[in-house]
Every structure is written in structure tokens, then in C-alpha cells.
Design a protein around this nucleic acid. Structure first.
Lengths: 210, 210
DNA sequence: GTCTATACAGAGATAGAC
DNA sequence: GTCTATCTCTGTATAGAC
């Protein structure tokens, strides 16, 4: 006889197992039956908690985005770092790519997981625009940034960062990576309207790559 | 007995029918059986010509991108338009969104068609970077643009344009559209390093919207 | 409220006969 | 080149056990 667990516990179990499988095998390649075998429940149970495989995916993505937002907020709190650098660091720290668990990022990249990628991007932009609103407005007030469209600019930088590092649309080779970073920072600088070279010391973080 | 048609003809038939259905019903929502019924062939015949439903999608996307690239090249040829404007017009004309047949764009937007969207984006960036390389380098030489990373900048602008107008990641409301355009042009200007306001006359094209 | 078991429709994809 | 038969998988819908 099966153990009858409390709703939230079961739901967590399904979520954790699904996340592992999606990362290991890919979203499309993971069948609901794969999940059922590991969690050791019947199909009816799965559909009791989630309306579809995609709903599980959405829940997982919200978790990933929230984890990224927390990393970003941690960095933004540290007033010892200059504002511009703090914001760029927050944007980079937020990305699953630069996190230890870059299996997530790897999986996010694959063409098969376009749905995962797009859902992630949408949720991330929404959440991170919230997180960055305050520091960016502060920067404009302090005359560090010069932006006519602050929120649109932030969205654009987030988007570019994501596409550069978290996504393979540009199909870049690894040897182009240092140039990629520099170009991104240069464009981010221009969009934010900081004085040129403001991010130069930031570049040293990636010095070892070039 | 079924008519045995020449390979290329059959392939075209499948492609044309699939494109209509993908646009009308969506990629995921269109079953291979839907295509088979209209083209009036058996499943085996379909898989004789294409390895998967996705392969059909890829072929269709290459067609769409090529159509966009042709529109862009037409505009770039017209030397009577100032270079900066010509480039921005080419970028906009290339997008299915601004084309008459915006059923394609509408379909491209839907979350269900993330795969379609991503494949399109990848192919479009690759093709349009080629198309824009020459005019952008010309602009730098003529001191109209000031870019440290020309190709990366172009990719970034193409990407931003796509995301703003061809994609719904930003989840903007219609009343924000004029602002959206202005913000995009402002960021594009900054990335290209043109003198501020260079694109102002361009904005008048969208004057009726605001 | 939580769970199993199972049957079923319809999807994508494959094998092999003709 | 074309077909039919068949496989696996998602997702729906049950009926019923505890």
C-alpha cells in the first residue's frame, strides 16, 4: 500500500524529481512516466497535482527565477561596491549560467527546450526589472546614468545579457567569449549612458579568459 | 492508386500546406495527420520527404527569413535614403511583423510556438548580420557610426528589434507602443554611436501612433 | 481528500511490404 | 515512392480503495 503524503510534500517531490530529470534528459525527452517511476506514484496522482507536464515546467522556472533574483538582491545590498558595477554584477549573478549549477543553463540552451527558455526569459525579465528598478532610478538621480527610458533600457540590457550568455542564439565560438563580454559591457554602458570606461575594472574579472 | 509525383513537387506541396496550417492553427496544434489529410498522402510518404515535423518547420522558417532578407536588401540598395535611416528601415522591413502578411508574426508570438520563434530568431540573426555587414562598415568608415564592436552591435540591435516587435516577451500593452518605438530607436542610436537625434525624422513615420 | 489502476484517444515516429 | 500496421508517448477519464 502506498503512503499517503500531505499535498505540499507530494507536490515538492514531483517538482524536485521533474527538475532533476528535465536537467539530465531534457524537457521533451522526459516522459511523465519517467517521473512517476521515480516518485513512485500513479499517473492519476500526478494529474491530481498538476494539470499538465508544462505546468510542472512553469513552476520549476519560477523557482529558478526566484533563486536568481535572490542572488541579485544580495549583491545590490552591498553598498561598498560602486553602483554601476553592483548593477552589472547583479545581472550576471542572476543568470543560471554564472551560478555553480550550470547544468540548468546547459539544459536551458538546447533547442529542444525552446519553451523552457522562453518561459524563463519572460519570468526573469518581469522579476529582474522589479529588482533593478530602485538602484537604476537611484543612479539616474545621482547623475551616474543618463537614460531617457530607464525601464526599457534595463529590459534591453537584461535581454542582451541573457541572449549573450544564457542562450545560444548567436552561435558563438568559445574563443569569441572575451570579445563577447567586452561588447556586451560596451553596449550596456552606452544604453545606461555612463561615462565611457566606467566598467573597465569590471572587465578585469574576466581578464583570465582572454 | 495514388499519383506518383516528382519529389520536389511533393515536397513543395507539403511545405505550402504545412505553412498555412502552422499559421492558421499553430505549430503544436497542427498534427501531421492534418497535413496528410489535405495533401492526401499517407504518413509514410510524409516521412519519406521529412525526417520530422520539426524539419518541416525549419524549412518554412528559412523561407520566411529569406523573404525578410530580400525586403531588407531592396531598401539598402536605395542610396537616396541617408545611411542610418536606411539601416533602421531595413531592420524593420525585414521583420514579418511590419510586413503585410502579419499572420506569420502573430503566430510567431504565441508561447505555444516557442520553438518556431527561437529557430526563426537564430536563422534571422545569422542571415541579417550578413546583409547588414557591408552598410554598417561603410557607416563606420564614413564616420557616421562609432562602434568598437560593429557586428556585435548589429546583432544586439537586431535582437532588440525582434524582441520589441516580433515577440511578446516584454508583455507590453498597446498604449505603450509609441514609447516602445522611441526607446528602441534611442538604444539603437546609442549602440551605433550616431549623433543624438539622428533618427528623429525616422520617428515621424510613427507619429500617427502617438 | 488522497491515491491506484486501467482503458483510451490521438500525437509523432518507424518498419517493412508492395 | 507509397502504403499499412504498429510502437510509444501525452493527456483524459474513469471507477473505486483507503
Amino acid at each position: 500500500m502506498k503512503a499517503i503524503k500531505e499535498g505540499e510534500v507530494r507536490k515538492r517531490e514531483i517538482l524536485v524529481t521533474a527538475r532533476e530529470l528535465f536537467i539530465k534528459k531534457g524537457y521533451e525527452q522526459t516522459s511523465i512516466n519517467d517521473i512517476l517511476k521515480i516518485v513512485d506514484i500513479a499517473k492519476g496522482t500526478f494529474y491530481y497535482y498538476f494539470a499538465s507536464k508544462e505546468e510542472v515546467l512553469e513552476a520549476i522556472i519560477l523557482d529558478i527565477v526566484e533563486e536568481g533574483a535572490r542572488r541579485a538582491q544580495m549583491i545590490l545590498k552591498d553598498k561598498s561596491i560602486p553602483l554601476v558595477n553592483r548593477i552589472m554584477m547583479a545581472i550576471m549573478a542572476q543568470a543560471p549560467e554564472f551560478e555553480g549549477s550550470n547544468e540548468i543553463a546547459e539544459e536551458l540552451h538546447k533547442v529542444e527546450n525552446a519553451k523552457l527558455e522562453q518561459l524563463y526569459l519572460k519570468a526573469m525579465l518581469k522579476r529582474m526589472t522589479q529588482v533593478l528598478q530602485e538602484p537604476v532610478l537611484e543612479g539616474i538621480e545621482r547623475d551616474v546614468f543618463h537614460m531617457d527610458y530607464p525601464m526599457e533600457g534595463i529590459e534591453s540590457i537584461l535581454l542582451l545579457g541573457h541572449m549573450m550568455f544564457d542562450c545560444d542564439v548567436f552561435q558563438w565560438k568559445t574563443e569569441d567569449f572575451p570579445r563577447k563580454i567586452k561588447a556586451f559591457l560596451c553596449n550596456a554602458e552606452r544604453i545606461m549612458g555612463t561615462s565611457v570606461g566606467e566598467l573597465d575594472e569590471f572587465l578585469q574579472m574576466f581578464g583570465q579568459l582572454s
